[in-house]
Write a protein that binds this DNA or RNA. Sequence first.
DNA 1: GTCTATATCGCGATAGAC
DNA 2: GTCTATCGCGATATAGAC
Lengths: 191, 191
Amino acid sequence: MGRWEPGARDRIADAALELFTEGGFAATTVPQITARAGLTTRTFFRHFADKRDVLFADEDEIPLAITGLLAVAPLSTPTIEVIGGGLRGLVSDYEPRRDQLRARLLIIQSDDSLRERYLRKLSVMSAAMVAGFRQRGTDGRVADVAAKIGSTLFGFAYDRWLATGETRSLSELIDETLDLFGSEFAASTAT
Amino acid sequence: MGRWEPGARDRIADAALELFTEGGFAATTVPQITARAGLTTRTFFRHFADKRDVLFADEDEIPLAITGLLAVAPLSTPTIEVIGGGLRGLVSDYEPRRDQLRARLLIIQSDDSLRERYLRKLSVMSAAMVAGFRQRGTDGRVADVAAKIGSTLFGFAYDRWLATGETRSLSELIDETLDLFGSEFAASTAT
DNA sequence: GTCTATATCGCGATAGAC
DNA sequence: GTCTATCGCGATATAGAC
C-alpha cells in the first residue's frame, strides 16, 4: 500500500504480545511496542483504540459470523437448539488456536482492565445473537433472552475450555454446558 | 477527623454526576470535578480508582449482601429457587432509587468505557454468588453454573427495569425473567 | 501535595498505489 | 489527482510515584 513495510498492524500485535509476556501488560508501554515493531507511537493508535485492544484485535469478525449462523437456521428449530447449533458453528474459529488463546488468557487474567475488556466480548456476542435471531423472525423478547443465554453459555464453556488441565474440545464443553444449564432449570420447571 | 470539610467523597460524587450530565462523561475532566467540589485533583484519586469509578461507588456492599443471602437459604431449596430468592432479597437496595439509577444508566450507556465498567458489576455479582452457594454446601460446578445464571438473569431484569417506559417493579421483572429463561430451557428438556 | 510518566489523540505533511 | 497509511510534532488528561 505504500512505501512502508506492510503488515504494520500485525507487527504491532506480535511485538505487543511478546512484550506483554516478557514484562507484563501494565509495565509495557506503547512506545516500547512500536519501537520493536519499527513504527511510531502515533501509528499504534491508528490501528488500535487503546493499549488493551491489541489483544482483542482478532475478534472483529466473530459478531458477523454469529449473526449469519443464527439467521440461516431452519425456522422449525427450537430456539435453544439454534443456540447450540450456532455456538458449535463458531468453534472452528477457536479450536485450532487453543494454545495461543490460553497464553492470551493468562495475560488477560493478570490485569483488571484487561479482564474488563474481556467481558465486553460476551456483550458483543449477545448483541450479534439478537440480530441473528431477529433476522430469522424470532420474537424480540425471545431473541433477547436467547441471546443472553447463548452468550453466557458460550462464555462459560470457553473459560472452561481454556482452564488449566482441561483437555476436552470446546465443542464437547459447549454440549456439556448446555446440559448443565438445562438441568438447573429442569428442576424448576418440573415443579 | 481533621480541618477539612467532611464528606469529600460525596461532594466529589455529586459534582461528578452534575458535570457528566451537563457536558458528558468523556468531556468532563477530573480537575473540573474536584474544582467544583472544592478539592484538589489528588483527592479525587484517593477516593476513587479512576474517573469511571465515581459512578459505581455505591455498589461495594452488594457482593457481601449476595453472599449472605444465598448462604442462609435452607439446604432443601432447589438451586434455581435459591437464585430467585436471593435476587428478590436484593431488590430493596435498588427499588427506592429507580430514578437516580435511570439517570446514571443514561450516562453509562453513552460511553464505551462506562459500559465496560458496568459489565464488571455482573461479574462481581457472579463471583459473590459462587461464594454464597459454596458456603451453603452446593457442589462447586453447580455453584458456578447457578451463579452465572443468577447474575445473567439479574442483569437482564435490571436493564429491563430501567428501560424507558417500564413501570413494573424490579421484583416483578425478576420473576418474569426467571420464567422467560426457564421456558427457553423447558422446550429443550421436554424433548 | 507536588511532580512526572505515559496514554491518547488532533493536525498537517508526505509518500506511494490506483 | 485522489486515497490511504504513515510520520512527526505537540497538547492534554489520567494516574501513579515520591
